[in-house]
């Protein structure tokens, strides 16, 4: 005897019902929770940027952000300026201050620029907006740039804080889905701390970037001018992704830093 649930009509009705229920449920949840999620992401960006310039609650061996309650206040205090560079084919075509950018984009803060979207724009031959955050702590200036690239499984991104000579003053990395215990360790303190003091430019002022290297003779990272960081064992592709995003994205900022030098 054929069961009720084997009938074609039943199958079709069930499928349609299921799609409707699941679709409605997910769409409702996603839109209901969206404000909270966006707010969390906004605070996280502030925490990330502040982390890169050394404002964090690190204890030995752990990487800890400042709490979300403090983040907006400290962000106001320490991030003194935000600049937006428009880049086409690797060349800076215009430079907007924070106020100019906000006026043009219905009040959106430059640090909320979606790097992924801008990279897609660049690929499509359109202008890419490059945000740069200027921070000041204890009389020292930090220039913090967001970077984004691909790891083994999914997106990886980070924030690099530099001084006006493009010497790294702090780094923060994060990832969407790298292998826990291997590639995911790019957000571990020992890896991020290694970047401190590394040079991005050669003596002659040519951009060289930083390579995540398996074979450098400097595992404790004493030499800050070798343009190399010791790789994480077992995470070569993630490491290559970090190398690539540093070289591709930070390179675009070089003209800005050169201008900065010339002005002084």
């Amino acid at each position: 005897m054929e069961k009720r649930t084997d009938k074609n009509s039943y199958t079709v009705i069930f499928a349609i019902g299921m799609v409707l229920v699941v679709g409605a449920l997910l769409a409702y949840l996603a839109s209901a929770l969206k404000p909270m999620i966006t707010e969390n992401q906004r605070l996280e960006k502030q925490q990330n940027i502040l982390y890169a310039m050394g404002i964090n609650n690190n204890t030995p061996g752990s990487a800890t952000f400042i709490s979300t309650d403090e983040a907006p206040e400290k962000f106001e205090k320490y991030i003194t300026d935000q600049v937006v560079l428009e880049v086409k084919d690797g060349k800076i075509v215009s430079q907007l201050s924070r106020e100019e950018y906000k006026a043009k984009n219905s009040g959106q803060e430059p640090y909320l620029i979606d790097v992924k979207k801008q990279q897609a724009n660049a690929k499509a031959g359109k202008n890419r907006k490059l945000p740069l955050f200027v921070g000041e702590k204890e009389g020292k200036k930090f220039y913090i740039a967001p970077i984004r690239g691909k790891g083994l499984w999914d997106a990886i991104w980070g924030y690099i804080a530099m001084d006006e000579n493009m010497v790294v003053q702090g780094a923060y990395f994060d990832h969407k889905g790298e292998t826990p215990g291997l590639g995911a360790n790019i957000k571990q303190r020992y890896f991020m701390d290694d970047f401190y003091g590394e040079h991005l430019l050669t003596e002659a002022g040519v951009f060289k970037g930083i390579t995540i290297s398996k074979s450098n003779a400097d595992p404790t990272n004493q030499d800050k001018k070798d343009y190399e960081i010791d790789a994480i064992a077992g995470a070569t592709i993630t490491g290559d992704g970090v190398t690539a995003m540093i070289k591709k994205d930070l390179k675009l900022y070089v003209p800005y830093f050169k201008n900065l030098k010339n002005k002084q």
Partner: peptide, 24 residues
């Protein structure tokens, strides 16, 4: 109530929905 012909899709959707809800 699950139709046997599409039970695999239904199972996959149930688990995916559960996980996405928890994630959101």
């Amino acid at each position: 109530i699950i139709p046997s012909k599409i039970r695999i899709i239904v199972q996959l959707i149930v688990v995916a929905t559960l996980v996405i809800i928890v994630d959101l």
